[in-house]
Deep mutational scan, measured.
Amino acid sequence: TEKQERAIEYIRRLGYSEEEARRILKKANGNPDLAKEIARRIG
């Protein structure tokens, strides 16, 4: 989804690889607090 793409872009800007960014997002899917934090940061 567009939100996922924005989140991946944001995480990659922090210096993670695409693969790492996707792994972090997968974790965020099972972790509402982390997901909220990422969403808050990407606006």
Rank of each mutant, 00 (worst) to 15 (best):
R6G: 10
R22N: 06
L25Q: 00
Y16L: 06
E37R: 15
E19T: 10
K3I: 13
R22M: 08
A39M: 03
E5M: 13
A28Y: 04
E5F: 09
P32W: 07
E2K: 12
S17P: 04
I38A: 04
K27T: 12
E37N: 08
A28W: 03
Q4H: 09
L14W: 05
N31L: 06
G15W: 01
G43N: 15
N31G: 02
I24G: 00
S17M: 03
L14C: 07
L14F: 06
E2Y: 05
E9M: 09
T1Q: 12
I24R: 00
I42L: 15
N31S: 07
T1F: 12
R23A: 14
E5H: 09
K27A: 15
L25Y: 05
N31V: 06
R41G: 11
R23T: 11
I11H: 00
E9A: 10
G30D: 07
S17W: 02
R23Q: 14
R41S: 12
I42G: 15
N29A: 09
E18H: 07
I24L: 08
Y16I: 06
A7Q: 02
E9T: 06
I8F: 07
E19P: 07
I38L: 11
Y16M: 06
R40A: 09
E5K: 14
G43E: 12
R22F: 09
L34Y: 07
A39I: 05
N31A: 05
I38G: 01
I38M: 10
E9F: 06
K26D: 10
Y10P: 01
E20G: 06
S17V: 02
G30M: 10
K26A: 14
I42R: 12
R13G: 15
N31C: 07
G15R: 01
R41H: 11
S17Q: 03
L14G: 01
E9S: 07
N29S: 08
G43R: 15
R41N: 13
G30V: 02
E5C: 14
G15A: 01
E9G: 06
L34P: 01
A21M: 03
R40K: 11
R23S: 12
E37M: 10
A35I: 03
L25V: 04
I24M: 07
N29M: 10
Y10M: 06
G43I: 15
R13L: 14
R23P: 00
L25P: 00
R40E: 14
E18S: 07
L34G: 03
E5T: 09
R22H: 09
R6P: 06
Y10N: 04
A35P: 01
E2A: 13
T1N: 12
N31T: 03
R12L: 12
R23I: 11
A7K: 02
A7S: 05
T1P: 10
I38W: 05
L34C: 08
G30P: 01
S17K: 04
P32S: 08
I42W: 12
A21Y: 01
E9P: 01
R22E: 05
S17E: 03
A28N: 02
L34S: 04
E20M: 11
R6M: 14
L25A: 01
E9V: 07
L25E: 00
K3C: 10
L25S: 01
K36M: 15
R13K: 14
L14V: 02
K27R: 14
A39E: 02
E37H: 12
Q4D: 08
E19L: 12
K36S: 05
A21T: 05
R13I: 07
R6W: 09
A21H: 00
R40T: 09
G43T: 15
N29F: 10
S17T: 14
K3V: 13
I38K: 03
L34E: 06
A35Y: 03
I42S: 13
P32T: 09
K27H: 13
Y16K: 02
T1R: 13
S17L: 04
K36N: 04
I8P: 01
E9L: 10
G15L: 02
G15P: 00
G30R: 04
K36T: 07
E19Q: 12
N29W: 07
R41I: 11
E18C: 10
I38P: 01
A7E: 03
S17D: 05
D33H: 09
R12I: 15
K3A: 15
I24H: 01
R23H: 12
A21R: 00
G15N: 02
A39V: 05
Q4A: 13
K3H: 12
K3T: 13
E18D: 11
K3Y: 08
Q4E: 12
I24T: 02
K3E: 15
Y10R: 03
E37P: 01
K36H: 04
I8R: 03
R22Y: 13
P32Y: 07
R6N: 12
Q4M: 13
D33F: 08
G43M: 15
G30E: 04
E2M: 07
E20S: 07
E19R: 10
R41W: 08
R6E: 15
S17G: 05
Y16C: 05
N29L: 10
K3S: 14
R22P: 00
A28C: 09
L34F: 06
Y16Q: 01
E5Y: 09
I38D: 03
G15H: 02
N31Q: 07
R6V: 08
R40N: 10
E9W: 08
E19A: 13
N31E: 07
R22Q: 08
E2V: 11
R40F: 07
A35S: 03
D33Q: 11
I42H: 14
Y16G: 00
L34A: 07
R12C: 08
E2I: 12
R6A: 15
I42T: 12
I24P: 00
R13D: 11
R23Y: 14
Y10H: 06
R41L: 11
R40I: 13
E20P: 00
K26S: 10
K36W: 07
E18A: 09
I8C: 05
L25I: 05
R41V: 09
A28S: 05
A28M: 04
Q4P: 05
R22I: 09
I38T: 04
E18P: 06
E9K: 09
P32E: 07
N31F: 05
R13A: 15
N29G: 14
A21W: 01
E20C: 14
G15D: 01
A39K: 02
G30H: 06
S17I: 02
E9Q: 10
L34T: 06
T1A: 12
I42M: 15
K3D: 15
L34D: 05
A39F: 02
E5V: 09
I38R: 05
K27Q: 14
L34Q: 06
E5Q: 13
E5A: 12
K27V: 14
E20L: 07
K26Q: 12
I42Y: 13
R40G: 07
E2N: 11
I11D: 00
A39W: 02
R12V: 14
A35L: 03
A7G: 03
E18Y: 11
L25D: 00
A28H: 02
T1M: 11
K26V: 10
R13M: 14
K26Y: 11
E18G: 05
P32M: 06
R12A: 05
I11Q: 00
A7T: 10
Y16N: 02
N31H: 07
L34M: 09
E37Y: 09
K27N: 10
Y16W: 08
I38E: 04
K26N: 10
E37D: 09
E19D: 12
N31R: 06
N29Q: 11
S17A: 04
E20N: 06
E18T: 08
I8Q: 02
Y10G: 03
L14Y: 05
R22L: 09
E2T: 12
L14S: 02
G43A: 15
A28P: 01
I11Y: 03
A39G: 03
L14N: 01
I11R: 00
G43K: 15
P32A: 13
R12F: 04
I11A: 01
K3P: 13
E2L: 08
E20T: 08
K36D: 03
K36I: 15
R13T: 14
I24C: 05
R22V: 07
R22K: 08
A35T: 02
I38N: 04
A28K: 01
D33M: 08
R12P: 00
E18V: 08
Q4G: 08
G30L: 05
P32K: 03
N29P: 01
Q4I: 15
N29K: 13
A39H: 02
A7W: 06
Y16A: 02
A21E: 00
Y10V: 06
E19K: 10
R13H: 13
Y16T: 01
Q4Y: 09
I8A: 03
E37V: 12
A7H: 03
D33V: 10
K26W: 11
E2S: 12
R12N: 03
K3Q: 15
N29E: 08
T1Y: 12
R22G: 04
I8W: 06
K27F: 15
N31D: 15
N31K: 06
A7D: 04
K26L: 13
R41E: 10
R6C: 13
A28V: 05
E37F: 07
Q4K: 08
E9D: 14
S17F: 02
P32I: 11
R40D: 11
N31W: 05
E19F: 13
R41K: 13
A28R: 01
N29T: 04
